[in-house]
């Protein structure tokens, strides 16, 4: 007994970095929509960066903590509070047994991540703890969390001690440092998402290619972990192409026959048969994950070389953050 769900929130599920290596069997990857926030949440409590955390969506849950623990909350700002007092994100927080963590209105972004030192005690299915909601496998009983679910924590990591040794008279204690999260998650009201050309980019008319690069698209309400449906200028093919099913990737932007694009995300099917006009660069996938239905986005085409260097830059920043965090733990 470690954490009890009082209210589950809109969609709260266990996710890690996904179920890799089984796509040729049709097994979808799943995993956190915003992988950088997941990795940072884990770094902040001393976990390996692929450990499973709770992914919470728009309306967060209400959780009872039944064991002293070190946690971190990252991602979108869903107004977290412990026993009624607002608690800062992007830093380690030592929480005392008996506290209640409650999430309130969504102030920025869409998805928040709650990590616990040691990780949640969730069995792996196909090398991953991620929940595949439609396939009802992995995570906690293969589904989103419900009221009265109880999740245990694994043995806590050595990083537990420094904060807990501090005199904790309140419900929780905070580290005196936090992550400069804007470096990893620069959220804005109408974000510009960088993309490379999709496999079938050349199938589209010149005007559609231009519109895709210049016009805003609105994220529709039919958007979930599987993908975001967008509405905007109808994107047209130069002529009808019979496309055979082929593999798709995280961030592939398919265009359905009605001309509307769909951005395929964490719970996407492994293969698809619609032409792909563009591909979101890996470094910008977390930005998409934090976009709410109704928000508008724009695409900006970059070269593959740019996509790669942006990806490597993010990885360097994460590496730097990792050293800084372990140093901060040692100093305190």
């Amino acid at each position: 007994m470690s954490l009890r769900v009082i209210k589950p929130g809109l969609l709260t599920s266990i996710q890690d970095l996904g179920r890799k290596g089984f796509q040729k069997h049709g097994v979808i990857v799943s995993g956190a929509m915003d992988a950088y926030s997941l990795r940072i949440a884990n770094l902040l409590v001393g976990n390996t960066d692929h450990e499973a955390v709770l992914e919470m969506t728009l309306m967060g849950p209400k959780l009872k903590i039944e064991k002293d623990c070190l946690i971190a909350i990252t991602g979108g700002n869903l107004s977290p509070a412990i026993d009624g007092e607002p608690v800062p994100m992007w830093k380690p927080v030592f929480v005392k047994k008996g506290c209640t963590i409650k999430f309130g209105p969504c102030k920025s972004g869409c998805r928040a991540y709650l990590s616990v030192a040691g990780g949640y005690a969730i069995p792996e299915v196909m090398n991953s703890k991620s929940t595949y909601l439609r396939g009802e496998l992995g995570g906690y009983k293969g589904r989103a969390l419900q009221a009265d679910d109880v999740i245990s924590f694994n043995e806590q990591s050595h990083h537990q001690s420094p904060l807990s040794k501090k005199e904790v008279t309140e419900s929780f204690a905070l580290a005196n440092w936090s992550v400069n999260y804007k470096k990893f998650l620069p959220l804005s009201e109408s974000p510009i998402i960088r993309v490379t050309k999709g496999s079938q980019f050349e199938y589209f008319t010149e005007s559609s290619k231009n519109e895709c690069a210049k016009m805003p698209f609105t994220v529709s309400n039919q958007s979930d972990r599987m993908g975001y449906r967008l509405s905007g200028p109808a994107l047209k093919l130069t002529h009808k192409h019979e496309l055979l099913s082929e593999a798709v990737s995280n961030g592939s932007i398919q265009v359905t026959p009605d001309g509307n694009p769909i951005i395929l995300l964490a719970d996407r099917q492994t293969t698809g048969g619609y032409p792909k006009i563009a591909q979101v660069i890996t470094a910008d996938l977390p930005l998409i994950a934090q976009v709410k239905p109704g928000q508008s986005i724009r695409f900006s085409f970059v070269t593959l070389e740019d996509a790669e260097s942006l990806y490597l830059q993010k990885e360097r920043q994460l590496k730097e953050l990792k050293s800084a965090v372990s140093l901060a733990f040692k100093n305190k």
Binding site: K20, F22, Q23, K24, L244, S245, E246, A247, S249, T270
Partner: peptide
């Protein structure tokens, strides 16, 4: 991983 399809192979 590799994902085979009708006419192509995708290498992740």
């Amino acid at each position: 991983e590799c994902v085979p399809a009708f006419i192509n192979l995708t290498i992740f």
